[in-house]
Design a protein around this nucleic acid. Sequence first.
DNA 1: TCGATATACGGAGGAGCCCTCCGTTTGGCA
DNA 2: TGCCAAACGGAGGGCTCCTCCGTATATCGA
Lengths: 208, 208
Amino acid sequence: MGADVTSRSRRAAGGKAPGEARKPRADAQRNRDGLLEAAKVAFAEVGPEASLEEIARRADVGIGTLYRHFPTRDAIVEAVYRREVQQLADAAPRLSDTLPPAEALRAWMGVFIDYVAAKKVIAPALKSLVGAQSALYADTVSRISGAMALLVERAQASGDIRPSADPADLLRALIGFAYVNSGPDWEASALRLIDLLIDGLRLQRGEP
Amino acid sequence: MGADVTSRSRRAAGGKAPGEARKPRADAQRNRDGLLEAAKVAFAEVGPEASLEEIARRADVGIGTLYRHFPTRDAIVEAVYRREVQQLADAAPRLSDTLPPAEALRAWMGVFIDYVAAKKVIAPALKSLVGAQSALYADTVSRISGAMALLVERAQASGDIRPSADPADLLRALIGFAYVNSGPDWEASALRLIDLLIDGLRLQRGEP
DNA sequence: TCGATATACGGAGGAGCCCTCCGTTTGGCA
DNA sequence: TGCCAAACGGAGGGCTCCTCCGTATATCGA
């Protein structure tokens, strides 16, 4: 995303094109990595409200350094979660190649829930997936949206589900189910609700 | 709820039973009301994270006074929302007397969404409706749960929806839909999702 | 190899918030 | 009218966020 201040992918060391910044310094890179690692741990333990000063402390780095690398809280949160989200998105095509279309859709939604359950870290970031203000999360959003769209399209093409089904709606529903993640029963409940939705989608009453 | 420190419903002024505290002082009552009013405004503007010191300031009251009346942030949030939630719960029996059971259920869920949309204030308190830790919100929760249970029971009794439908699941779904409340389309999307759920509930495939 | 200098670092400091504690004020009852 | 429980207010300790700037050093050209 555009959040990081340090830019990583410069052309390999050596001659630099005119106007191009030089390669990031080694200590900068090291500190950045350390910060991400510390943040991952802290977010997992405390949630995304974890103290940034505490994260800097854990990374053995000054608070100023943290802010230089990640000017906002969102920036560091987003950086930490990106890889996790990517894994989730990757599951979609895999499932789609394995299962009948509607089942693949159901299964992926289940995986989404499992994922949120396992890495509790993700849950609080969910809102950003549909949030308006999150230019920051655009990348993450498009990956997940893409996964959902793929599954819905295939299920529609095969006639498994009603053609009016809107992937954006389903994503909202899924995020909503995942959001309500307290109580001992929440995961099972979410899975039942997914089944209910899929059943609803299968119904073709009065659709063109 | 048990949150308020000052207790309002004493027996009418006059002789007091042995061991019973005296009636609250007039200034205390006045300040309590002022705090609630200020909090209502502040929560509406900023959400439930609004600064408590700011609320005390707006109410022309010391911070200590705020804390005496409402020892925790939850206490004051809860007090503000209770009346709003009550209105919502009241809508259920009214709809149930007017519409066919499944339609009443659908309509009430719609009202819930409308309500969250109109008084944005409520949205952030949603999580508490299913939260585990919220002994504080027990009253609110039971009112809403009761409304949902009533509607589901009647719809089941009439055979409109599958007997396995779980009111708690549906409440979770509804709260989830309402939670994902950003973007221009969210309300319409939520209503479509409700329709989808109701359609799913109508399906009786493989149910006893 | 050896500076020069862009780059990166650290942390003090201002401002805000949360919540507690306690000296002061005041409303209500006798 | 006077007493005193009840209520008040806000200073203060501790935490957080974020900015700013003087200091240190990694990198690159000579």
